[in-house]
């Protein structure tokens, strides 16, 4: 057997031994059960049905918050007058945690709270975080909770960075990024960046890694190209609409 054949055989054996990444699996926009339907994003029925997937599938859930009419609402976008209050959505999560306990695949339940940009009302979005913390503290002594705060709005994140939350909640701060934005102003404040593979090129992933950020990948569907990105970039968090498919791919 020539050295070249031995080298090829070793390379093949090494590749065959590769394991799939094991990211923290989050329910995208509180809507990850049944078939994909974006009109159900951040609605109470979808949140309740998604949590029924249970800890064998979900490590956590993503909840979007908007500030309107002097209240923090659970909604994907500003403008829905019938949107429920954020605290009501968080009550559903707390009830779930009190009922089922921590996730099957890890000791920590992860709640990703995305603050939707709202122009002049951005300052008030910080109150959403305070309300989330107050609600989650009801259960965080029994179930360890990691609270991820993210936003597309860099000014909002900068303000939030000054007001981090102490234990028992482990709070991480992340930027939602559509393109390869300049994160210079937030460099020392961020823990992770949240991106979708279709808007992110290979140099961007390298830059995030060089700057020490964890990566959260999100997508509605779990397609072969999305799985390719997960396998290639091994993100810390994955937030998807097809959570059961993703769990089947990751394994328990």
């Amino acid at each position: 057997m020539t050295p070249r054949i031995v080298a090829v055989a070793l390379a093949v054996a090494a590749l065959a031994g590769c394991n799939r990444p094991r990211p923290v699996l989050l329910c995208h926009n509180s809507n990850c059960v049944g078939t994909l339907d974006a009109s159900r994003d951040d609605t109470m029925p979808a949140l309740q049905a998604s949590l029924e997937l249970g800890p064998s599938v979900l490590d956590g859930v993503e909840i979007d918050a908007v500030w309107q009419n002097n209240y923090c609402h659970f909604a994907h976008d500003v403008g829905d007058p019938a949107a429920p209050l954020l605290v009501d959505a968080l009550d559903v999560v707390v009830d779930y945690l009190q009922r089922v306990g921590p996730p099957h695949s890890g000791a920590t339940f992860t709640l990703l709270l995305e603050l939707k940009s709202a122009g002049d009302a951005n300052a008030d979005l910080n109150r959403c975080v305070s309300r989330a913390v107050t609600t989650l503290e009801r259960v965080s002594h029994d179930v360890p909770i990691q609270l991820l705060i993210s936003s597309f709005d860099q000014k909002l994140l900068k303000a939030r960075a000054l007001k981090r939350v102490a234990a028992p909640l482990d709070m991480q701060l992340g930027a939602e990024i559509w393109t390869t934005s300049d994160l210079g102003a937030l460099r020392s404040s961020l823990d992770f960046v949240s991106v979708t593979p279709s808007d992110t090129d290979a140099p961007a992933y390298s830059r995030y890694a060089d700057q020490g950020y964890d990566v959260a990948l999100w997508n509605e569907g779990v397609t072969p190209t999305f799985l390719d990105a997960v396998a290639l970039h091994a993100p810390r968090y994955v937030s998807v609409g097809e959570a059961a498919v993703m769990r089947g791919w990751i394994g328990n």
Binding site: D37, A38, D199, E220, G221
Partner: peptide
């Protein structure tokens, strides 16, 4: 569940 993608309403699935 069977999932429709590019021809499905209610998704914006660039992937």
């Amino acid at each position: 569940p069977t999932q429709l993608y590019s021809l499905s309403r209610g998704t914006s699935n660039l992937e």
